[in-house]
């Protein structure tokens, strides 16, 4: 199936998840969250959510525990930088490729 039915003849995007394409493929380092240190995950209550607040792409959910949407996360690392308990670590994508193999 092609894009003939799209209904526009230009490039057009509106606010919403993924309207810039699957930007997760841009990522070279992946944020990985440790639930034993993350405040809402550890307490089991809605709290902190600083990662959700700072994520420029809105790919972290405001849930318990917070979830990261890797389809769109570009791997900028702001969440890891801002996390007050250092619960998020940036891990080389290459490690995950090796794991798959």
């Amino acid at each position: 199936m092609g894009t003939r039915q799209y209904g526009r003849s230009t490039s057009h995007s509106e606010p919403g998840p993924g309207d810039a394409g699957r930007t997760g493929s841009w990522r070279v380092v992946r944020p990985v969250m440790d639930p034993s240190i993350c405040i809402p995950a550890k307490r089991g209550t809605p709290a902190c959510f600083i990662c959700w607040l700072y994520c420029p792409d809105g790919v972290i959910s405001r849930t318990v525990p917070p979830a990261i949407d890797y389809e769109y996360c570009k791997g900028c690392g702001i969440c890891a930088e801002e996390c007050p308990t250092k619960a998020i670590t940036m891990v080389e994508e290459a490690c995950f490729i090796q794991d798959k193999e």
Partner: peptide, 28 residues
């Protein structure tokens, strides 16, 4: 109803926020 017009458009087609298959650069 804010929108971005003609921003960076990927080489390949993409699913937009509403799940419709949107053009890549070449289709446009």
């Amino acid at each position: 109803n804010p929108a971005n017009l003609n921003t960076v458009t990927m080489p390949d087609v993409r699913l937009d926020a509403k799940g419709r298959l949107a053009h890549g650069y070449m289709e446009i």
